[in-house]
Structures are given as structure tokens and as C-alpha cells.
Design a protein around this nucleic acid. Sequence first.
DNA 1: CGATATTCTTGAAAAAGTCAACCATTAATT
DNA 2: AATTAATGGTTGACTTTTTCAAGAATATCG
Lengths: 156, 156
Amino acid sequence: MTTPTAPATRGTERFLASELAGEANFLIARARSRGSAEANARLAPLGLRVRSYSVLSLACSGLHPTQRELAEFLSLDPSQIVALVDNLEKDGHVRRIPDPNDRRSKLIDSTEAGQALYERARALTCESEALSLAGLSAAEQRQFLALLNKAAFPPN
Amino acid sequence: MTTPTAPATRGTERFLASELAGEANFLIARARSRGSAEANARLAPLGLRVRSYSVLSLACSGLHPTQRELAEFLSLDPSQIVALVDNLEKDGHVRRIPDPNDRRSKLIDSTEAGQALYERARALTCESEALSLAGLSAAEQRQFLALLNKAAFPPN
DNA sequence: CGATATTCTTGAAAAAGTCAACCATTAATT
DNA sequence: AATTAATGGTTGACTTTTTCAAGAATATCG
């Protein structure tokens, strides 16, 4: 009388009752691990990963972020941004523009090729997201995103 | 008429309207980055990090997971579990018990010292979680955890 | 028995994260 | 105005995390 068909996540269900399974940190880490693995796999054919994709996305936003702003928004070290922008720039997807207001900082903008790449990549990450959130109803997904937003941008 | 007091997350609010800010993968990654940094800082005095803590937690659950099960539940490579268990075992917090049903696998159990350490660590991670979710009401936190659970354990 | 699969382990390589120091520039203080 | 302090980008070193391939012991299946 137990699981006549194949078990879904085979074997791990017994740990759902553990204390760890009730901790937000653990659940978020697991969701991220699975989600980003899925997204990375889809982005790989484009020569992108979630990291470079997120930089490309902001470069394509028309908001002209500085590298410092990218670091803060993406929760990355400024030195990581250097490498990410270097690679995207080398491939001609992104440009460093001198900031007219502050000659220390550089505004990141996208090229035509970068914009085109982003549109393809964005479609893939949306597919990926839909799959990752397949267990949630449409209403739940909206709820989830709203709550995630509060968790990702706390009032600290 | 704009922000008479100090800006909260200074400067990054303009990107909240970006497409990226609406993507679950990005929000989850950001929440995880901030949350685990916070938790790691609190666990550091105990010689733990979120990784080793999660292994210790399951070792203390009384469920006697195998290393394979740990890897699957924690979304880690089996080889990573080896190193994590090695360290916890070296410090006398965890034990490898031969699986009576399968001599290939080893059941992970906690020692007395491990249990004591876990209780202290657990209190810290709960504090950490409370702080990370401070922007959410109690009801929202329950909702969030329920939805996170669905996202972390999809029906795939 | 023989073939195949699974569990733990090792080792190597890539990617991600952390940190300190430097240069150019800007902001603040005197 | 001159000095001092702070900021943005960059480099380099170093640690941790992630990913993969392969091997030894054991289990499973034909």
C-alpha cells in the first residue's frame, strides 16, 4: 500500500519532517541551487550563465548602472563585476561608458548584439522559471514573487 | 521633495523596476546571498557554516541519513558530503555508522557533543532567519515558508 | 556466475566568493 | 587653495564552492 508507482523525489521525503526542512535559509538555498542549475543549463548554448545574464539584463535595462551599482544590486563583490563586464565586453555585448558626472565610475550599456542576445536569453530564463515554479498555481506564483521581493530587499 | 532622510538601500531602488528584479531566480539568489552571509557570520564562532550546519542538523534528526540521502536532500555532490562529514567527524560531532542493510553506505549520526553544538547553532540560525524575514509579517512569513517549500520540492 | 548499478571516496579543474592594496578621482576639512 | 579623507574601478592572491571523472567495495539482476 505504499507508492505503487515510482517515488517522485525518491527517498528524501522522510526528511521533510526534519527541523532543517522548516528553515527558510535551507529552503531558499535548495530552491536556488535547483533553479540556477536549471537556468544555467538553458543559458549554456548562448555562452551565458545566470551571473553574466543578470549583468547583461541590467546593461540592457536602459538604466545605465555603474559597476558599483551592479555589485550592490547583485550582491557581488566589485571585483567580480570587473570580470563579468570584461567578458561581456570582450564578446561585444556590453560597453563601458565614462560617467559624465564622475570620471571614476563607468556606466554599463548594452550593444545591439547584446540586446539581441538578451532577448533570447530572457526567453530561456522565463521558461526556466516557469518550470521551477510549476508546483505553484498562478496566484501562488504572484504571491511568492511578492514575498520574495520583501525577503530580497529587506527594510534594514 | 525627494527623500529628506537618508536613503535605505542607497541607490539601488531604481533597479527595482528592471525586468531582472521581477525574475524569481534573481530574487532567490539575492535572498540566499544575504541570508547565508548573515547566518554564516553568526555560526562562525561555533566553527560552523550553513553547509556544515545543515549536515549536523540532519545528523541530529534521529533519521540516520546516508551520505547519499544527504547529498540529494541538500542538493550537493556526494563528494562534498564526504568532506563535510569528515570535518564534523574529526571534531567529534558526528559519527559514521555502517548501514546494517547495505555495507556500501554509511549512516550519519550525531554524538552528544554534536547534539549540544546543534542546539546552540539552531538558536543562532533561528535568530538569523527572524532578522532576514523581518520585513514580513508573521502571516506573510508562514505563507512564504509554505510557498518556499513548494518551490524547493517541486513535483517534477 | 556475470553484468550492471550503486555508495563512498579521491583527485583535479572550473567557478564563485573574499580580501587587501593600488590608482585616479571626488568630496570634505581646514 | 591645500591637505585629507572617501569612493569607484582594477589587480592579485587566496579560500571556498561546484562540477566531473574515475576507482574500490558492495549490491542487484539476468
